[in-house]
Amino acid sequence: MTPLSVVRSVPGMTTETVVRLDGVRKEFGETAALDGVSLEIRRGEAVAVMGPSGCGKSTLLNMVAGLDRPTAGEVTVHGERLDRMNETGLALFRRHHLGMIFQFFNLLDDLSALDNVALAAQLTGSSAAAARRRALELFDELGIAGRRDVYPAALSGGERQRVAVARALMNRPALLLADEPTGALDSRAGEQVMDLLIDLNQIGQTLLIVTHDERLAHRCASRLVELADGRIARESALDRV
């Protein structure tokens, strides 16, 4: 198994809170996608959010990522109140403290795999050379070094998601958010991505995974949050399979 030494070197799970949602409500028109959700995620935890379609999983992820604003309630991530930040503040916060991976990878088609990853560091002002050096380290750690100059369209699904993970880890985020990370992958590639997430969590990376996939939740998460109709229906600790 890859040691992922370059990813981050943080202690395991602590009592420090990375995410705190307090009475978060989000309305779209007359419909409440989230209805008074309160949730805490501690450093080093791996939390899976599950529930049927339309239950508010993605909306919850958007709140934590600062991609959307709550109608009511407080969203605190890494000690910062996201619900009070402007767009630029949110962008800077995401740049430095959050990493995100998506079901459909969201890589830029006209950048090579390496440049897709380096981009995240270049946006913070890193030089192209320094960004590419850091990206290459991640490629080595994630086992895709041979695909660095390939463009996304020529990568397999699993490779694309690994590239997306590398990009998410580029700026050593406090929190890694994953939205259906295996949803567009075949079972073998899905397994590889799950292994990668487990490895990341084991070296201290805090994870918040939104998924329909029970297997992914049970393999990667230490806690399961189940949503129904915009509310937390149940929370449970998981023993990883």
Partner: peptide, 16 residues
Amino acid sequence: RRDLGMLKSIGMTPRQ
């Protein structure tokens, strides 16, 4: 649109 969304998600500011 998708690229812009991604760029913003990894920290591209509105000014950028």
